[in-house]
Nucleic acid binder design. Sequence first.
DNA 1: GCCAACGTTGGC
DNA 2: GCCAACGTTGGC
Length: 150
Amino acid sequence: MAYWLMKSEPDEVSIDDLEARHTVPWFGVRNYQARNFMRDAMQLGDRAFFYHSGCAEPGIAGICEICSPAHPDETQFDAASPYFDPKSSPEKPRWLCVDVKFVRKTQLLTLAEMRGFAELSQMQTLQRGNRLSITPVSPAEWDFILERLK
DNA sequence: GCCAACGTTGGC
DNA sequence: GCCAACGTTGGC
């Protein structure tokens, strides 16, 4: 059992979208490190903070759970998708995703608030220059944040 | 294998 | 819209 932080642009998929759809494929990851986390490290039942990025108020907006093994991300084969990858093929898919299911929505814990906690100073997603859309969260960080989520 | 150029992420 | 940081590409 491991913990994660997964970034999504709310314009594309927000916590409200996830709540409405119950489960969504985590499509659009085009970074090998993030892909490898999904392929090699994630397990069914792992929980993740659902983080809103690229928006006016970035931060943790809810909690979701990994509910499928890694499988090919269909958007890579769709020429009309911004995530289309001409170098990938269904025979040899390059990009994977997992499905996540809605657990709960929380009051937004903003990035600014997260940066204010000394207990979170080592959190990977808060490190300078970090751009990974999926990062591991330590059990201590998970518990600390969970206690502060409303 | 090096590395410059370029593209992307994402906060501000 | 800006820009720091960093990943990827491709020529050599």
